[in-house]
């Protein structure tokens, strides 16, 4: 069986991916600090102020990164992959892929770019990022994008969740879900690389995956 390199991610997809990765990394670290400042600042430091600054800047980066990803899905010159996220099609194929991952089945169908489990996970994480952004805005006292007075505009989020301290908890817990997602996501790509021997793991850096050529 011959194999060939397939260009899976163009530069835009890769860049967008890594912007979101760095944003999430900074958000999680600074978020933990803001939640519970685990080390103190020196006499002339602005430690908390900087933590918050980077938290908010990365929040913008993450939200914009998500918007860019959604745009690419519909209007990329390289690969408009929004159809891969079709809910009904993926629901139909869910048993196939779950069966495979639970060792019930030996193989699974050939999926174009994302298998159903992946598609759902990415859709979910996108929504979760939106949720985290909204809860974040609701507990932020400033002007989002320089125009939107967050304390007033997102008051309804607090009302919905039962008060600002609850919004904080939701914001905090959704961070944990994102952390778990990252863990599983990285594991899955290592797993795929080991099992499929298709360079999935490095493809998000190089852009290339190894594909079997159908004779």
């Amino acid at each position: 069986m011959a194999e060939e390199l397939k260009y899976e991610w163009n530069f835009a997809f890769r860049l967008d991916h890594w912007v979101r990765v760095s944003a999430i990394a900074i958000l999680v670290f600074t978020g933990f600090y803001i939640h519970w400042p685990f080390f103190g600042g020196g006499p002339d430091s602005f430690l908390m102020a900087w933590m918050r600054f980077f938290h908010f800047v990365s929040a913008y980066a993450l939200v914009l990164g998500l918007i860019v990803r959604a745009y690419l899905a519909f209007n990329s010159a390289f690969d408009r992959d929004w159809k891969d996220f079709g809910i009904f099609r993926n629901l139909r194929d869910l048993p196939d892929i779950i069966g495979y991952y639970l060792f019930i089945k030996g193989t699974h169908k050939d999926y174009r770019k994302y298998n159903p489990l992946q598609a759902f996970a990415y859709l979910f994480i996108g929504l979760l990022i939106i949720f985290t952004a909204f809860t974040g805005a609701a507990i932020y006292n400033g002007k989002a994008f320089g125009v939107l007075n967050t304390a007033e505009s997102f008051m309804w989020v607090n009302t919905l969740l039962g008060g600002e301290s609850y919004t904080r908890i939701w914001h905090f817990l959704s961070m944990w879900v994102i952390i778990i997602f990252v863990g599983v996501h990285v594991y899955m790509s290592i797993l795929q690389t080991a099992v499929g021997k298709d360079r999935t793991f490095t493809s998000i850096l190089t852009g290339y995956k190894l594909k079997k050529k159908t004779p």
């Binding site: 495979y100 991952y101 060792f103 030996g106 193989t107 699974h108 050939d110 999926y111 298998n115 944990w176 952390i179 778990i180 863990g183 599983v184 594991y187 797993l191 795929q192 080991a194 099992v195 499929g196 021997k197 298709d198 999935t200 995956k209 079997k212």
Partner: peptide, 30 residues
């Protein structure tokens, strides 16, 4: 977090045990 880590570990062990990684049973074709 701990539950996820445990889940991943179990799955990784199972994958190794099933021989998938060695390519005996060809799995994912992505």
């Amino acid at each position: 977090g701990v539950a996820t880590a445990a889940g991943i570990a179990v799955h990784a062990i199972a994958t190794a045990a099933s021989g998938r990684a060695k390519g005996e049973k060809k799995g994912g074709e992505e």
